[in-house]
Amino acid sequence: MSTTLATYIALPGNAAEAFEHWHRVFGGELDLTRYGDMHMEGMPFEPDPQHVAHAVLTTAGGQIAGGDAMEDGNDYLVHGTAYSLLYSVETPDDARGLIQKLITGGGSVGMPFEKAPWGEWYGTVFDRFGVMWSFSAPSAD
């Protein structure tokens, strides 16, 4: 196995829905394991068997991993946090297509996708799960 780095997102009980949505938007290969799919004997907790223990979406651009957050009293705020996922694509039209899919799927524009002062195209979208996606594409000139 080679060394990799992937974003991991702990979601509040809707990881299956989120990862299936992202799979439809970005394509790639989705590997999703629910707690009910695993051998649970000896686990130090009793998770909901329908919750996601681990998911990985592998796309041409990289991997997103995640699952449902453990019910340990922590609030896992997604929308309004300081992080985002940066998706760099080859053309502005590629970005526009992905942005449109996220908006059509219940998302909203955070920052319009337009030419940025540094010369590339840039914009942000919040998907329906509150995750902020930043999109970047090189300028055509």
Rank of each mutant, 00 (worst) to 15 (best):
F19V: 04
G28W: 08
V131I: 15
H23Y: 08
H79C: 05
L5Q: 06
Y87L: 15
W133P: 15
G73L: 11
G107H: 12
V89K: 10
G73F: 09
V56E: 11
G130H: 01
G61T: 08
A6M: 10
P49V: 13
G80K: 04
G28N: 08
M38H: 00
R96A: 13
G110V: 14
D93H: 08
G105H: 13
A55T: 06
T81Y: 00
G62L: 12
S108P: 03
A53N: 13
M38Q: 08
S108N: 09
L77R: 11
A116H: 15
V78W: 09
M43K: 01
L5A: 09
F26Y: 09
R128E: 10
G119T: 05
V25E: 07
W121C: 07
F45P: 04
A140E: 15
T81M: 11
A116Q: 12
V131P: 14
T3E: 10
V78M: 10
S88I: 12
Q63V: 00
L77V: 13
T33I: 13
V131F: 10
L86P: 06
D141T: 14
L30S: 03
H23V: 05
L98G: 01
Y76C: 03
I64D: 00
A15R: 04
A69D: 07
L86K: 03
G119R: 07
E17L: 09
F135M: 14
I99G: 04
I64T: 05
Y87E: 03
L11H: 01
L32G: 01
G42H: 10
G61E: 11
S139E: 03
Q50I: 01
S134T: 12
D75H: 06
S136N: 15
D141L: 07
A55F: 09
I99V: 14
T3Y: 11
G130C: 03
G130W: 01
G105F: 15
T7M: 07
H51D: 10
A140Y: 05
P47A: 12
Y122C: 01
H39T: 09
D48I: 12
V109G: 02
D75M: 04
L32D: 02
I64E: 00
P112F: 01
T3N: 08
F45N: 02
D68S: 01
F135R: 02
M40Y: 00
R34Y: 00
A95S: 12
T59R: 02
T4G: 04
P117A: 09
G110P: 06
G107Y: 13
I99H: 04
H54N: 11
H54I: 05
M1F: 03
A82H: 08
S134Q: 13
A60K: 10
